[in-house]
């Protein structure tokens, strides 16, 4: 069944142009030798890639972003894996409600969530900015961890865990020796997707940054407001590469269909 549909082919092409076009333009402009961001570029140079490392703010906020995303990831795993396990393993009253609660950070607009977190964590409880940032990022990563881990538990045969119990393992040791190793790829995939979500986040971070405390995306936003040179295109390309590599790893681990299924 290999029929040729001219209309469908054209439509698909247009969709790809629409999706990839802007990325290609950014990619091209990042090699601009001049000082003004423009397309098509006047020539070819790595000048603005070098410039990235000269902007002190980028390096500093890159480290902050990495630290917040990694640490938040650990916290989200600590809450998320037990939650996913409980939601998959047992049925209890209000299970759907709890499930909804864990997924709600995706459903609530980031602007609203960010503002609320700032209002309470920073203004009311006077937590340090870094703590607020960490809590915010943990919250937005949690749904991805719960969802992806629960999805890999849904194909896990819990008789395997029962077998371990019947052979004398305690609940904890059965979980760590038998359950965890079999959902490992799901956990790694959930960590990566959550990391990307956190690392690229703007709407939560924007409320929890200020003088001296900022994340890379926020710093980039600030930079564009003041400069219109191709540095921003260069750094965007680097971030696209990072995202692309992580996506590739996730695809290898468990297939991207895990995230598109509703």
């Amino acid at each position: 069944m290999r029929e040729k549909h001219f209309g469908l082919g054209l439509f698909s092409l247009l969709v790809f142009v629409f999706l990839l076009g802007p990325l290609l333009i950014i990619f091209a402009t990042s090699f601009e030798p001049g000082i003004v961001l423009q397309f098509p570029p006047d020539g070819f140079s790595f000048r603005w890639y070098e410039q990235i490392f000269k902007v002190e703010g980028f390096l500093r906020t890159f480290k902050t972003s990495i630290a917040i995303s990694l640490l938040g990831n650990v916290f989200a795993l600590l809450f998320g894996i037990p939650a996913a396990y409980a939601l998959s393993r047992s049925s209890f009253r209000g299970k759907e409600l709890i499930n909804g609660l864990f997924l709600s950070p995706i459903l609530i607009p980031g602007i609203v969530l960010g503002f609320t977190l700032m209002k309470y964590l920073i203004v009311v409880y006077h937590l340090p900015m870094y703590a607020g940032l960490l809590i915010g990022h943990t919250v937005i990563m949690l749904p991805f961890i719960v969802r992806v881990v629960a999805s890999s538990l849904s194909t896990f045969d819990f008789a395997i865990e029962e077998a371990a119990l019947s052979l004398g393992a305690g609940r904890m040791s059965a979980f760590f020796k038998v359950v965890l190793p079999n959902i490992r790829s799901g956990i790694i995939a959930s960590m990566l997707i959550a990391f990307l979500e956190s690392f690229n986040n703007i709407d939560i971070s924007v409320y929890m940054t200020g003088p001296g405390v900022s994340t890379l995306p926020i710093e980039m936003l600030t930079y564009v407001e003041n400069h219109f040179d191709p540095t921003i295109a260069a750094i965007s390309v680097l971030l696209m590469v990072l995202t692309g590599v992580l996506m590739l790893v996730i695809e290898r681990l468990m297939g991207l269909s895990q995230f598109t299924r509703r």
Partner: peptide
């Protein structure tokens, strides 16, 4: 067990 429930890893 019906599914044998061997430890796959």
């Amino acid at each position: 067990f019906q599914s044998y429930a061997l430890f796959p890893h």
